[in-house]
Simulated assay, not measured.
Amino acid sequence: MKFLIATEKPFAPAAVKQIREIIENAGHETVLLEKYTDKNELLHAVSTADAMIVRSDVVDKEVLDAAGNLKIVVRAGAGYDNVDLHAATANNICVMNTPGQNSNAVAELVFGMLLYLARCSFDGSTGSELKGKRLGLHAFGYIGKQVAKIANGFGMEVLAYSPSLALNPEKGKAFNVTAVQSPGELYEKSEIISLHMPANDQTRGSIDYDLLSKLPQKGIVINTARKEVVNEADMLRIMEERPGFKYATDIKPVNHDKMARKFGNRYLASAKKCGAQTSEANVNAGLAAAEQIVKFFADGDETFRVNPIK
Protein backbone atom coordinates (compact mmCIF):
# COMPACT_ATOMS: atom_id res chain seq x y z
CA MET A 1 0.00 0.00 0.00
CA LYS A 2 1.15 3.55 -0.75
CA PHE A 3 0.94 5.95 2.21
CA LEU A 4 0.99 9.66 1.29
CA ILE A 5 2.12 12.13 3.95
CA ALA A 6 0.76 15.42 2.58
CA THR A 7 1.69 18.35 4.79
CA GLU A 8 1.80 21.93 3.62
CA LYS A 9 3.04 22.62 7.16
CA PRO A 10 5.41 19.66 7.63
CA PHE A 11 5.97 17.43 10.61
CA ALA A 12 9.32 17.82 12.33
CA PRO A 13 12.05 15.76 10.65
CA ALA A 14 12.29 13.48 13.70
CA ALA A 15 8.55 12.79 13.45
CA VAL A 16 8.77 12.04 9.71
CA LYS A 17 11.57 9.56 10.34
CA GLN A 18 9.55 7.67 12.94
CA ILE A 19 6.35 7.78 10.87
CA ARG A 20 8.19 6.27 7.91
CA GLU A 21 9.61 3.54 10.12
CA ILE A 22 6.12 2.53 11.30
CA ILE A 23 4.77 2.49 7.76
CA GLU A 24 7.70 0.74 6.11
CA ASN A 25 8.20 -1.81 8.91
CA ALA A 26 4.62 -2.87 8.20
CA GLY A 27 5.53 -3.45 4.55
CA HIS A 28 4.03 -0.31 3.03
CA GLU A 29 5.49 2.46 0.87
CA THR A 30 5.86 6.08 1.97
CA VAL A 31 5.41 9.10 -0.32
CA LEU A 32 6.23 12.52 1.10
CA LEU A 33 4.67 15.79 -0.12
CA GLU A 34 5.79 18.73 2.01
CA LYS A 35 5.49 22.53 1.75
CA TYR A 36 3.50 22.30 -1.46
CA THR A 37 2.17 25.61 -2.80
CA ASP A 38 -0.13 24.42 -5.59
CA LYS A 39 -3.22 22.27 -5.01
CA ASN A 40 -2.43 20.44 -8.24
CA GLU A 41 0.61 18.92 -6.50
CA LEU A 42 -1.72 17.39 -3.93
CA LEU A 43 -4.18 16.22 -6.58
CA HIS A 44 -1.38 14.48 -8.46
CA ALA A 45 0.13 12.88 -5.36
CA VAL A 46 -3.17 11.58 -3.99
CA SER A 47 -4.24 10.04 -7.31
CA THR A 48 -2.23 6.86 -6.63
CA ALA A 49 -2.28 6.82 -2.82
CA ASP A 50 -4.03 4.13 -0.76
CA ALA A 51 -3.80 6.12 2.48
CA MET A 52 -3.09 9.72 3.41
CA ILE A 53 -1.90 11.52 6.53
CA VAL A 54 -2.55 15.28 6.72
CA ARG A 55 -2.35 18.05 9.28
CA SER A 56 -4.34 21.23 8.56
CA ASP A 57 -4.32 20.54 4.82
CA VAL A 58 -7.68 20.96 3.08
CA VAL A 59 -9.03 17.63 1.88
CA ASP A 60 -12.12 18.66 -0.06
CA LYS A 61 -14.35 16.94 -2.60
CA GLU A 62 -11.95 17.71 -5.44
CA VAL A 63 -9.08 16.02 -3.62
CA LEU A 64 -11.16 12.99 -2.64
CA ASP A 65 -12.61 12.60 -6.13
CA ALA A 66 -9.08 12.62 -7.55
CA ALA A 67 -8.03 9.79 -5.21
CA GLY A 68 -8.92 6.68 -7.14
CA ASN A 69 -7.28 4.22 -4.73
CA LEU A 70 -7.67 6.08 -1.44
CA LYS A 71 -9.22 4.09 1.40
CA ILE A 72 -8.36 6.14 4.48
CA VAL A 73 -7.39 9.70 5.49
CA VAL A 74 -6.07 10.42 8.97
CA ARG A 75 -5.96 13.97 10.25
CA ALA A 76 -3.01 14.14 12.65
CA GLY A 77 -4.75 16.12 15.37
CA ALA A 78 -8.12 16.36 17.06
CA GLY A 79 -10.03 18.71 14.74
CA TYR A 80 -11.08 17.43 11.33
CA ASP A 81 -13.15 20.24 9.82
CA ASN A 82 -10.52 20.52 7.07
CA VAL A 83 -11.74 17.19 5.64
CA ASP A 84 -15.01 16.92 3.68
CA LEU A 85 -16.65 14.05 5.55
CA HIS A 86 -19.64 13.77 3.21
CA ALA A 87 -17.43 13.47 0.13
CA ALA A 88 -15.25 10.93 1.93
CA THR A 89 -18.26 8.76 2.76
CA ALA A 90 -19.54 9.07 -0.82
CA ASN A 91 -16.16 7.82 -2.03
CA ASN A 92 -16.06 4.99 0.52
CA ILE A 93 -13.08 6.56 2.30
CA CYS A 94 -12.63 6.23 6.06
CA VAL A 95 -11.65 9.45 7.87
CA MET A 96 -9.99 9.37 11.29
CA ASN A 97 -8.48 11.87 13.69
CA THR A 98 -5.93 11.32 16.47
CA PRO A 99 -7.70 12.64 19.58
CA GLY A 100 -5.67 13.39 22.66
CA GLN A 101 -2.25 13.52 21.03
CA ASN A 102 -2.05 17.34 21.06
CA SER A 103 -3.95 17.85 24.32
CA ASN A 104 -1.11 18.87 26.58
CA ALA A 105 0.40 21.21 24.00
CA VAL A 106 -2.90 23.05 23.57
CA ALA A 107 -3.62 23.09 27.30
CA GLU A 108 -0.24 24.66 28.04
CA LEU A 109 -0.89 27.30 25.37
CA VAL A 110 -4.15 28.19 27.13
CA PHE A 111 -2.19 29.13 30.23
CA GLY A 112 0.52 30.91 28.29
CA MET A 113 -2.14 33.16 26.77
CA LEU A 114 -4.03 33.48 30.04
CA LEU A 115 -0.96 34.58 31.99
CA TYR A 116 -0.09 37.06 29.24
CA LEU A 117 -3.52 38.70 29.52
CA ALA A 118 -3.79 38.47 33.31
CA ARG A 119 -0.38 40.16 33.68
CA CYS A 120 -1.15 42.94 31.18
CA SER A 121 1.23 41.57 28.53
CA PHE A 122 4.06 41.88 31.07
CA ASP A 123 4.21 45.64 30.51
CA GLY A 124 4.99 46.36 34.16
CA SER A 125 1.51 47.46 35.16
CA THR A 126 -0.53 45.75 37.89
CA GLY A 127 -2.20 42.56 36.72
CA SER A 128 -4.06 39.79 38.49
CA GLU A 129 -3.34 36.28 39.74
CA LEU A 130 -5.04 33.08 38.60
CA LYS A 131 -5.31 31.55 42.06
CA GLY A 132 -8.91 31.53 43.27
CA LYS A 133 -10.34 32.60 39.91
CA ARG A 134 -13.29 30.70 38.40
CA LEU A 135 -12.34 29.06 35.09
CA GLY A 136 -15.13 27.80 32.84
CA LEU A 137 -14.35 25.11 30.28
CA HIS A 138 -16.71 25.24 27.32
CA ALA A 139 -16.47 21.57 26.23
CA PHE A 140 -14.80 18.86 28.25
CA GLY A 141 -12.91 16.51 25.95
CA TYR A 142 -9.25 15.54 25.95
CA ILE A 143 -7.99 19.13 25.98
CA GLY A 144 -10.55 20.40 28.48
CA LYS A 145 -9.55 17.68 30.92
CA GLN A 146 -5.87 18.58 30.58
CA VAL A 147 -6.66 22.27 31.10
CA ALA A 148 -8.55 21.31 34.26
CA LYS A 149 -5.51 19.45 35.62
CA ILE A 150 -3.26 22.46 35.09
CA ALA A 151 -5.87 24.83 36.53
CA ASN A 152 -5.99 22.73 39.70
CA GLY A 153 -2.27 23.35 40.07
CA PHE A 154 -2.87 27.10 39.91
CA GLY A 155 -5.50 26.83 42.65
CA MET A 156 -8.35 27.83 40.35
CA GLU A 157 -11.98 26.82 40.75
CA VAL A 158 -12.95 24.90 37.61
CA LEU A 159 -16.40 24.57 36.09
CA ALA A 160 -17.25 22.87 32.81
CA TYR A 161 -20.10 22.41 30.38
CA SER A 162 -20.57 19.78 27.70
CA PRO A 163 -23.79 17.91 26.82
CA SER A 164 -22.38 14.60 28.08
CA LEU A 165 -21.04 16.14 31.29
CA ALA A 166 -24.40 17.78 31.96
CA LEU A 167 -26.03 14.34 31.76
CA ASN A 168 -23.41 12.75 34.02
CA PRO A 169 -21.88 15.39 36.34
CA GLU A 170 -19.99 12.70 38.27
CA LYS A 171 -17.48 12.51 35.38
CA GLY A 172 -16.10 15.88 36.39
CA LYS A 173 -15.26 14.94 39.96
CA ALA A 174 -12.11 13.00 39.02
CA PHE A 175 -10.72 16.30 37.65
CA ASN A 176 -11.99 18.44 40.55
CA VAL A 177 -14.45 20.02 38.10
CA THR A 178 -17.98 21.20 38.82
CA ALA A 179 -20.37 20.38 35.98
CA VAL A 180 -23.02 22.93 35.00
CA GLN A 181 -26.19 22.35 33.03
CA SER A 182 -25.98 24.94 30.24
CA PRO A 183 -23.59 27.31 28.48
CA GLY A 184 -25.47 30.22 30.03
CA GLU A 185 -24.86 28.90 33.54
CA LEU A 186 -21.18 28.38 32.73
CA TYR A 187 -20.69 31.98 31.63
CA GLU A 188 -22.70 33.39 34.54
CA LYS A 189 -20.57 31.54 37.09
CA SER A 190 -17.13 31.97 35.47
CA GLU A 191 -14.61 34.80 35.33
CA ILE A 192 -12.51 33.19 32.60
CA ILE A 193 -13.71 31.00 29.72
CA SER A 194 -11.59 28.56 27.73
CA LEU A 195 -13.14 27.30 24.48
CA HIS A 196 -12.61 23.70 23.35
CA MET A 197 -15.53 22.76 21.10
CA PRO A 198 -15.27 21.72 17.43
CA ALA A 199 -16.65 23.88 14.63
CA ASN A 200 -19.92 22.42 13.35
CA ASP A 201 -23.46 23.51 12.52
CA GLN A 202 -24.34 23.73 16.21
CA THR A 203 -21.27 25.67 17.38
CA ARG A 204 -20.45 28.14 14.59
CA GLY A 205 -21.05 31.65 15.89
CA SER A 206 -22.41 30.25 19.15
CA ILE A 207 -20.12 32.35 21.35
CA ASP A 208 -22.26 35.41 20.90
CA TYR A 209 -23.16 38.62 22.70
CA ASP A 210 -25.76 36.91 24.88
CA LEU A 211 -23.18 34.49 26.30
CA LEU A 212 -20.30 36.96 26.48
CA SER A 213 -22.41 39.52 28.33
CA LYS A 214 -22.95 37.02 31.16
CA LEU A 215 -19.24 37.22 32.04
CA PRO A 216 -18.05 39.91 34.49
CA GLN A 217 -16.86 43.31 33.28
CA LYS A 218 -13.25 42.10 33.38
CA GLY A 219 -13.99 38.70 31.90
CA ILE A 220 -11.40 36.83 29.83
CA VAL A 221 -11.99 34.46 26.91
CA ILE A 222 -9.29 32.14 25.57
CA ASN A 223 -9.95 30.50 22.21
CA THR A 224 -7.71 27.60 21.20
CA ALA A 225 -10.59 25.86 19.41
CA ARG A 226 -11.74 27.26 16.06
CA LYS A 227 -12.21 30.79 14.76
CA GLU A 228 -15.71 30.02 13.53
CA VAL A 229 -17.19 29.33 16.97
CA VAL A 230 -16.86 32.98 18.02
CA ASN A 231 -19.22 35.61 16.66
CA GLU A 232 -16.54 38.19 15.85
CA ALA A 233 -18.91 41.15 15.64
CA ASP A 234 -20.25 40.33 19.10
CA MET A 235 -16.75 39.92 20.53
CA LEU A 236 -15.81 43.31 19.12
CA ARG A 237 -18.96 44.83 20.64
CA ILE A 238 -18.41 43.42 24.13
CA MET A 239 -14.79 44.59 24.18
CA GLU A 240 -15.85 48.07 23.09
CA GLU A 241 -18.48 48.21 25.83
CA ARG A 242 -16.26 46.80 28.59
CA PRO A 243 -12.81 48.41 28.93
CA GLY A 244 -11.57 45.55 31.12
CA PHE A 245 -12.68 42.64 28.92
CA LYS A 246 -9.87 40.57 27.35
CA TYR A 247 -9.63 38.06 24.51
CA ALA A 248 -6.85 35.77 23.32
CA THR A 249 -7.14 33.52 20.31
CA ASP A 250 -4.94 30.96 18.60
CA ILE A 251 -6.78 31.68 15.34
CA LYS A 252 -6.63 35.20 13.93
CA PRO A 253 -10.09 36.75 13.54
CA VAL A 254 -11.08 38.29 10.23
CA ASN A 255 -11.05 41.68 11.98
CA HIS A 256 -7.65 41.05 13.63
CA ASP A 257 -6.08 44.37 12.57
CA LYS A 258 -9.00 46.36 13.91
CA MET A 259 -8.99 44.50 17.22
CA ALA A 260 -5.21 44.84 17.66
CA ARG A 261 -5.44 48.57 16.96
CA LYS A 262 -8.42 49.21 19.26
CA PHE A 263 -7.67 46.99 22.23
CA GLY A 264 -3.90 46.86 22.63
CA ASN A 265 -2.80 44.46 25.37
CA ARG A 266 -6.40 43.39 26.06
CA TYR A 267 -6.21 41.34 22.86
CA LEU A 268 -3.80 38.66 21.69
CA ALA A 269 -3.75 36.53 18.53
CA SER A 270 -1.00 34.09 17.60
CA ALA A 271 0.72 34.65 14.25
CA LYS A 272 -0.64 31.29 13.06
CA LYS A 273 -2.47 28.44 14.77
CA CYS A 274 0.15 27.01 17.11
CA GLY A 275 -1.73 25.00 19.71
CA ALA A 276 -0.22 21.74 18.48
CA GLN A 277 3.08 23.28 17.41
CA THR A 278 5.40 21.59 19.87
CA SER A 279 7.96 18.97 18.97
CA GLU A 280 6.29 16.53 21.35
CA ALA A 281 2.78 16.96 19.93
CA ASN A 282 4.20 16.92 16.41
CA VAL A 283 5.67 13.48 17.02
CA ASN A 284 2.70 12.12 19.01
CA ALA A 285 0.04 12.98 16.42
CA GLY A 286 2.11 11.79 13.46
CA LEU A 287 2.97 8.45 15.03
CA ALA A 288 -0.62 7.88 16.10
CA ALA A 289 -1.79 8.58 12.54
CA ALA A 290 0.68 6.09 11.08
CA GLU A 291 -0.21 3.40 13.62
CA GLN A 292 -3.94 3.86 13.03
CA ILE A 293 -3.55 3.41 9.28
CA VAL A 294 -1.37 0.32 9.69
CA LYS A 295 -4.01 -1.21 12.00
CA PHE A 296 -6.76 -0.26 9.54
CA PHE A 297 -5.12 -2.26 6.76
CA ALA A 298 -3.99 -5.08 9.04
CA ASP A 299 -7.29 -5.86 10.75
CA GLY A 300 -9.89 -3.30 9.70
CA ASP A 301 -9.60 -1.27 12.91
CA GLU A 302 -11.78 1.88 12.61
CA THR A 303 -11.70 2.94 16.27
CA PHE A 304 -11.18 6.63 15.53
CA ARG A 305 -13.43 6.91 12.48
CA VAL A 306 -15.27 10.27 12.35
CA ASN A 307 -17.36 9.98 9.17
CA PRO A 308 -20.41 7.77 8.65
CA ILE A 309 -20.14 4.50 6.74
CA LYS A 310 -21.68 4.53 3.27
Score class of each variant (00 low, 15 high):
K2N: 15
A6G: 06
E8C: 06
F11G: 06
A14R: 09
A14S: 13
A15M: 05
R20V: 10
E24N: 10
N25T: 13
A26Y: 06
T37K: 15
H44M: 04
H44G: 04
A45Y: 09
M52E: 01
V54M: 05
K61M: 07
V63M: 13
V63S: 08
L70E: 01
I72Y: 02
R75M: 07
G77S: 12
A78F: 11
Y80S: 07
L85M: 12
A87W: 11
N91S: 12
C94P: 00
V95G: 06
S103L: 03
V106F: 09
A107P: 10
V110P: 01
M113D: 11
L114H: 05
L114T: 11
A118G: 04
R119V: 08
R119P: 06
L130Y: 10
G132A: 13
L135Y: 03
A139W: 01
A139T: 13
G144R: 02
K145G: 06
K145C: 07
A151C: 09
F154Y: 15
V158T: 15
L159P: 05
Y161T: 03
A174H: 07
F175A: 05
N176K: 15
V177M: 08
Q181D: 15
S182I: 03
G184S: 14
E185I: 03
Y187I: 05
Y187G: 03
E191W: 05
N200P: 05
S206H: 12
D208W: 08
L211I: 06
K218H: 14
G219I: 09
N223S: 10
V229M: 04
L236P: 00
I238N: 05
R242I: 04
F245R: 07
A248Q: 02
F263L: 06
G264I: 03
R266Y: 07
L268G: 04
L268P: 02
L268W: 09
A269D: 03
S270K: 10
S270F: 12
G275V: 02
T278G: 09
N282E: 14
Q292K: 14
F296N: 08
F304W: 15
N307W: 06
